[in-house]
Design a protein around this nucleic acid. Structure first.
Lengths: 340, 340
DNA sequence: CTGAAAGCGCTAACAT
DNA sequence: ATGTTAGCGCTTTCAG
């Protein structure tokens, strides 16, 4: 017996089934225009021959790829280790949301950050739309891209004048929750450690924090330590440098870290000076990474529901692709109180 | 002035440039068969009109997609949080290696685990090959798949009788390093906590561990705590149950955790009983996740170079696609000594 | 060096 | 309910 030769195209199946190509096509797409018998026959033959419809031919004909490009920053900076796990949880949840809608996920690392690169991505029918996981410094590029007919959505800060669709956390609210908590525990020398105000999300968190803390505790001071990237290493360096520049009696008694990774660096810097968390210094992080719960003392932090974020991102993008108007959406920030 | 209309296909550009379609095609692919002037002209016009070659038409014609499907288990089990960060570092490095070779990355969550699913993936010209990030329980399926002409490589245990190409860590060696270290510090009641022997990688680590420890410390005992999945929660439950079943004087004084995530659960269980690391119990993990260095006491662990793994996986797969014979490869295990 | 023709595999439109 | 035709956009012959 010959080895089962794999039928390569619809024509082959059509011949084998003694029907025409379109009938095979219809049968495989379960069209009501085909007899149950014919359908069964075609399906059986296709199965037996390991035939699968050529997706590229479909895409060419349909002018629709059912593919979404997802742009994720893997590394916080070149040569660094993994970026914050948050992006990966988000990626996983976006992947799931896309899979629910039978959309393929083309994973892209950001290359040159020009809007033309992304226009080309779409123009070449590589993907129907783009999901940017992280707005970071690319707001200007995104504004450019928004002037075109490119379909895209962004995880990042939701702002008033934004010409594109964003899904993001309630950063101001998140900051407020932290500020309020520090006020309750009567902390007086607070510090925010995170990105500069150029990162819109960072700015929002910082402002909410400052506002809420000072509202309840007007005499408190609020410092700002700027980290150049969100890696543990640079956060640690920034934190150490900050403490080096202070007398012991000027040390902060409350630190709001813009990410849990940064909070881990804060822990380290404090431990190395013999300061105790939360007795001497209260620390709160952001994102509720898994290890926030595992470290000791376990880390109080702000949780954002990535599952919800993922499905909203996909949902809004699909709306765009259907020609409907998408909406920017904020998802809630929740304070997860732990030992720190 | 009219808004710049986007030329949609090669024909349009050809007309605009007053040349034929093939010439446009050649010009855009930088063929030596085209005059520099013609080339410049075509390029300029294409650029001006935001034209990009239709990838799907290319793929249809070339019968090559330049796309690699990457199958990654996002969740250690349904409903869980993120899988171990290790998979994501690996994914990031695979992505980079693919991008270096101008291959697109189609990210797939594993669906039904039948080899036919994956044959279909390839038969439909969705991708040219597959990289499985994690062998886990699917060795039988992979053996099936290996009987077909499917091009794929796997991150996982490298074994003798394997009919497919695997790239994996030196798990036996990794286990030996841990066993040797515990022997040096005169530990006598050792335990391995990790997956069952059905996970080949786990088995290799455990056997290497046992062998090396008993070789230098024949009187030592080596226990085995089986976790049902690699989540923190199930590891914690397993560890607690184990300790619950022992008298204090039977407690282990050395624990080898099959992943850093599991090691964090071990830390927690020990802390909760007032046991000190490393005084009472020495702990060693696996993978060198970022937070292994951040926790306190910082975690001694085995590092595997994911960068190298990523590029080897891609390299071997490319060899297969070129019709050359790929090779299974082990990458070194390195003991990173920290405080634990 | 350039162009004309053909065909990759599919499906929608239009017959029948 | 099924078949015929045409064309999606590209590139590789082959001819000039």
């Amino acid at each position: 017996m010959k080895t089962k030769t794999r039928a390569k195209n619809m024509g082959d199946i059509a011949v084998l089934a003694n029907v025409s190509k379109p009938t095979v096509s219809r049968a495989l797409r379960d069209s009501p225009l085909v007899t149950a018998e014919t359908k069964a026959l075609v399906l059986e033959i296709a199965r037996k021959h390991g035939y699968a419809v050529n997706r590229n031919a479909q895409k060419l004909r349909d002018k629709r790829t059912n593919t979404i490009a997802v742009v994720a920053d893997f590394k916080s900076f070149p040569g660094s280790r993994l970026a914050d796990p948050f992006s990966f949880e988000l990626l996983a949840d976006v992947a799931q949301a896309l899979s629910l809608r039978s959309q393929d996920l083309l994973l892209c690392a950001p290359a040159e950050e020009s809007h033309e690169t992304y226009q080309t991505l779409l123009a070449s029918r590589h993907a129907d739309g783009i999901i940017f996981l992280g707005q970071g410094q690319r707001d200007p590029m995104l504004r450019q891209l928004a002037k075109t007919d490119a379909a895209f959505v962004v995880w990042g800060a939701v702002a008033q004048d934004q010409p594109y669709c964003a899904v993001g956390g309630a950063n101001v609210r998140g900051g407020e929750l932290v500020g309020a908590r520090f006020a309750e525990s009567k902390r007086r020398r607070a510090v925010f450690i995170g990105g500069s105000d150029e990162h819109l999300e960072m700015k929002q968190r910082r402002l909410g924090f400052e506002k809420a803390l000072l509202a309840k505790q007007p005499s408190a001071s609020v410092g700002h330590i700027v980290v150049s990237n969100f890696s543990y290493e640079s956060a640690l360096a920034a934190m150490v440098a900050y403490l080096d520049g202070k007398n012991k009696n000027e040390y902060p008694d409350a630190i709001f870290a813009a990410s849990d990774t940064i909070a881990m660096a804060v822990y380290k810097a404090l431990r190395d000076r013999g300061l105790s968390v939360p007795k001497d210094v209260s620390v709160i992080g952001y994102n509720d990474n898994p290890h926030a719960a595992w470290c000791s003392p376990s880390l109080t932090t702000i949780r954002q529901d990535t599952r919800q974020a993922g499905s909203l991102l996909v949902e809004q993008l699909m709306m765009m692709l259907e020609g409907r108007k998408p909406q920017s959406i904020m998802i809630p920030a929740e304070l997860i109180v732990r030992e720190s």
